[in-house]
Computed example of a mutant assay.
Amino acid sequence: MTLNNTQPATKPHYPILDGLRGVAALTVVAFHVFETHSTSHLNQIINHGYLAVDFFFLLSGFVIGYAYDDRWNKLTVGGFFKRRLARLQPMVVLGMIIGAACFYFQAGPVWPGLASVPAWQVLLVMLVGCTLIPLPISADIRGWQEMHPLNGPGWSLFFEYLANIMYALFVRKFSKKALTLLVAIAGAALVHYAVTSKTGDVIGGWSVNAEQLRIGFTRLMFPFFGGLLLSRTASVTHINNAFLWCSLLLLAVLAFPRVGGAENLWANGLYDSLSIIILFPLIIYMGASGNIAGVFSSRVCKFLGDISYPIYITHYPFIYTYTAWVSRHKGITLQEAWPYGLLTFVASVVLAYACLKLYDEPVRRWLNKKFIVKTIV
Rank of each mutant, 00 (worst) to 15 (best):
G187F: 04
A139P: 01
P339D: 05
G113N: 05
N5D: 12
L182W: 05
V23K: 13
H41W: 10
G152N: 15
P112D: 04
L3W: 04
R328D: 07
M166I: 04
S275P: 03
H148W: 05
L249G: 15
F57V: 14
G260W: 07
F371Q: 12
Q7E: 14
L270D: 03
D306L: 08
T196A: 08
L162M: 05
V373A: 13
I165Y: 06
P310F: 00
G290Y: 15
L59H: 00
G95Q: 08
I307C: 10
K330I: 09
V23Y: 00
W366R: 14
Q212W: 04
L123D: 01
Y353F: 11
R87P: 08
D140Y: 01
I97V: 11
P153T: 11
N368Y: 13
L250G: 10
A210G: 07
L42I: 05
L304C: 15
F159T: 10
L88K: 12
I276V: 08
Y320L: 06
Y104E: 09
I239E: 00
I64Y: 09
R299Q: 15
L250P: 11
T237V: 07
H315P: 08
R299I: 03
F280K: 15
T314M: 11
A163P: 01
L179F: 02
I376V: 09
L123V: 05
A100H: 09
V93L: 06
L213N: 13
M221N: 10
A293I: 06
A184Q: 01
M126G: 14
F31H: 15
W325R: 02
S40A: 13
L249E: 00
A100Y: 12
F280Y: 05
W120V: 03
Y66I: 00
M96R: 14
V33L: 02
P362H: 12
A255G: 14
T323D: 10
L135W: 05
I137S: 05
V259M: 06
I215E: 01
Y320N: 07
L179A: 11
A184V: 10
A67G: 07
A242R: 14
H32I: 04
I277C: 10
A67V: 04
G341D: 03
L334T: 03
E211A: 12
Y193Q: 08
F62V: 07
A337K: 11
L230D: 00
R258N: 14
R214G: 08
P223I: 02
